[in-house]
Nucleic acid binder design. Structure first.
Length: 264
DNA sequence: GAAGACCTGCTA
DNA sequence: TAGCAGGTCTTC
């Protein structure tokens, strides 16, 4: 479900709702694997009584800074999300001071909560990555562009929707290898990643179709980015630039849509 | 690389 | 009923 813009939208809404500064009075884990490798009992003991001091994000990870210099790291994977009201897919529940209850809903049960001192193995955040850091992250990498953008150790936060959108924006063929890019093309790709991710955040994230994994924010609102998507989910429909039907294929085991005429 | 695993529920 | 989904990890 969520890529960086959806996670960032959720983060901002949690902050606006005043989650920061509250104490975790009780934690209930409904689906034990959510907190693996800890058991629900161990997890509960570890977080109860701690304060949720600050909510940060890096790539697709939400980072709840806890008192005691520990972090609760949350990855929503495909269908995770938060709500302040109960539902039928609640996998973990935090009772916060002041009577606020935070429900973690995750129909497909892929989402993960981890306790750790740090988050590692991730490249620079896609929302803020500088041109210099983008070039540096690319050094020594020779990968098919679609796979490169999905690689969280390269740049963190890009998923299947925004990878296809960024490659269209940069007019680059997703099958190209990064080693063949000119400096100008790398620069275009950097600009494109920043542009599509920023647009996604501005619009409150993307939601597509009406499926159960469909992204909705904490207020149950669908992301406004849906209409802005130019290639993802538009296979067979006309390219917004040249009018040719968009091509669908599989790259790196992921459905990929692009324009064979515009993207070189 | 590619395929399977982890999961549920919607669409064709 | 088969196929598909915004993600990542493990195992050929």
């Amino acid at each position: 479900m969520p890529e960086l813009p959806e996670v960032e939208t959720i983060r901002r809404q949690l902050c606006e709702a005043g989650v920061e500064g509250r104490i975790i009075e009780k934690a209930h884990i409904e689906w034990p694997r959510t907190v693996e490798p800890l058991t629900p009992v161990a997890f509960r003991k570890a977080v109860q009584g701690r304060t949720l001091e600050k909510i940060d994000r890096h790539g697709k990870w939400l980072i709840f800074q806890l008192s005691g210099n520990e972090k609760l790291l949350v990855h929503l994977r495909m269908t995770g999300g938060f709500s302040f009201s109960p539902g039928s897919h609640d996998r973990a529940i935090l009772h916060l001071s002041g009577g606020l209850i935070l429900y973690f809903k995750d129909p497909r049960k892929f989402g993960r909560w981890r306790l750790a001192a740090s988050l590692d193995g991730l490249g620079p955040d896609a929302l803020t990555v500088t041109k210099k850091d983008f070039f540096q992250a690319l050094e020594g990498k020779d990968k098919v562009l679609k796979a490169l953008l999905l690689d969280q150790s390269f740049v963190a936060g890009v998923g299947n929707i925004y990878a296809d959108e960024a490659l269209f924006e940069a007019r680059l063929d997703p099958r190209r290898c990064s080693g063949t890019l000119s400096e100008d093309e790398i620069s275009k790709l950097w600009k494109a990643v920043r542009k599509v991710i920023e647009a996604g955040v501005r619009n409150g994230g993307t939601s597509l179709g009406d499926g159960q994994g469909n992204y909705v924010d904490l207020n149950g609102e669908a992301g406004g980015h849906r209409e802005k998507v130019k290639v993802y989910g538009r296979a067979g429909q006309p390219c917004v630039v040249c009018g040719q039907p968009l091509h669908k294929t599989q790259i790196a085991q992921r459905t990929t849509v692009f324009c064979t005429h515009c993207q070189k």
